[in-house]
Amino acid sequence: MSLLLRLCEWLATTSGSIALHESRYMYLIVLSVHVLTLCLFVGTAAIVDLRLMGLTMQSVRVSEVMTRLLPWTAAGFLLMIISGALLFYAAPLLRYQNIFFRAKMVTLVLAGVNVWVFHNTVYRRVAVWDQDPVPPRSARVVGGLALVFWVVLITLGRMIPYQVYWFDCNRQPQPAIVNVLAGCNTDSR
């Protein structure tokens, strides 16, 4: 059994996790905060991405759009991470063995890499193209990729609770590929 799986199993036995899992309102409140924060986090990020693609606020400098809006995006991200971590904590094992959750975490890392690469390459030379109504191709690609990542993240997040209908570890037999991807523990059966 993997270390992560054991960690999740242990997390699930902590009193905080059980309390959140069995709470009447708290879990739903955290879930609602997580969903509604989309407006702040992805909403402001999308405006920045659209500016990078030259699709909005063409007369405003790119650096201006970024410095004014990204603090709001960052605040949204913080709320997302906190509420998301609590949603994980409420059902660690169920999330860990959820294909959509796993894919979402991978996508989140890829989205982060996209942002990191942008800030360390294309954005370093922003002074050259700051005023361009339509930024250079590299910036447009980063903006477009980011939008694709948000779309994928939202879809995968929405699919997480539907796992039980399709590829639940507790509903065997499942195709081998599903068991591998979801990290189902099939030895003990």
Binding site: V35, L40, E64, I154
Partner: peptide
């Protein structure tokens, strides 16, 4: 999921204007 994508986008489109009206966000435009 598509509805949620719309939610995110409308959040951005509304917030930039409302924040600006409050003197926040893109306050130099």
């Amino acid at each position: 999921s598509i509805h949620l994508m719309g939610l995110a986008l409308i959040g951005g489109a509304l917030l930039v204007v409302d924040l600006r009206l409050l003197g926040l966000g893109l306050r130099h435009q």
